[in-house]
Design a protein around this nucleic acid. Sequence first.
DNA 1: CCTTGTGAATCGTTTCACAGCC
DNA 2: GGCTGTGAAACGATTCACAAGG
Lengths: 211, 211
Amino acid sequence: MKHIAESTVRRLSLYLRFLEEFETQGQATISSGELALSGGTTSAQVRKDLSFFGSFGKRGLGYGVRDLIGSIREILGLHRSWSVVIIGAGKIGAALAQYRGFTQRGFNVVGVYDKDPSRIGVTLDDITVRADAELERDIQRLKPQIAVLCVPGDAAQALVDRVTKAGVKAVLNFAPAQIHVPKGVTLRAVNMATELEILAFGLSHPEERAS
Amino acid sequence: MKHIAESTVRRLSLYLRFLEEFETQGQATISSGELALSGGTTSAQVRKDLSFFGSFGKRGLGYGVRDLIGSIREILGLHRSWSVVIIGAGKIGAALAQYRGFTQRGFNVVGVYDKDPSRIGVTLDDITVRADAELERDIQRLKPQIAVLCVPGDAAQALVDRVTKAGVKAVLNFAPAQIHVPKGVTLRAVNMATELEILAFGLSHPEERAS
DNA sequence: CCTTGTGAATCGTTTCACAGCC
DNA sequence: GGCTGTGAAACGATTCACAAGG
């Protein structure tokens, strides 16, 4: 298969959310134009995004909402469930551990870890914070594919090294640090400072703002 | 000025972080190649990014670390401070309100708001959660430029409408909903579901992962 | 007639490569 | 000699436009 751009995957995720909304509203069929409108893109873009993976529509008619939901879920890899460990049970880690959107979308939080003895044993909804010393053993046992990193910046790289060595194949990094992963591991980073700085840039250069 | 790509702004923010690190280590001067290495890009990219805004280096020598920090801060609009309101004092809103990285980078949280009476009056570090009915009055008084939205998806659009009408010019949306802003307002969204789904896609298509 | 799927054209970003300068 | 700044080339993504199919 050809290389797929991240922007395409991001839009597919967006389409999926809209399609689910259309489905709950009982709409059976949808055109690329309608879908484009919800997502702020163009009909050609929607069709091109889908065309990388196959032909899902009927000419003259559009896409079956239910079918397209199934196809996109399949494309994104949501036809199965994924196991997630959250590393760092501070404010953000705890908030994520209790975030219902995770489970709702098939991402099961199988463990939350912290180094701080005062956090270990704390219960977050139905999950108990464990000692970070247990990480390797638990990863070998529970085989989570994804680690979500919510620790201070200076602890981030060492923990990523540990979890990837133990077999984690994808990392979502909320720590304010640039981290590196071995080849074969997928990495994404959400950096609050960068998001705010992009906003500040937009505020400072109103003549050429993106939105 | 020519239009600047978001990817350029994002990298500038990244360079700034590395430069600050180099500065604390006492390094006086840096080449585009060194900077590129830290940020996982190329020296040509670094030079091109900077060239949109001027000439900051010395040929044969590189860039003065301190000077370049100043120049990038100026470019990003960090030579002044920005006021932020956080809307929604649930888990994520509260975590952000107490996040030190905000203030450290010149973003002052001047208010946290919630609709839920049981949250109103709660103190988060040195700031007290206020009733969301006070939003408009407070925005008129304190003139925050940025709103960070941490509310349930179905409440998001109405709140964005309110804060933009009251004068907020940039919105960072953590709510799991697609929202629209008037022209002239900068919008960014961080969507947990999308981030995880991009990871799931990467896990499901190992032959063509991005990293 | 309406809407998809897609090659071709366009547009934007990154990489190359080198002249200019310290 | 080494490194910047920058046009030009290469690459990649989006948009166009239309043939094909219901």
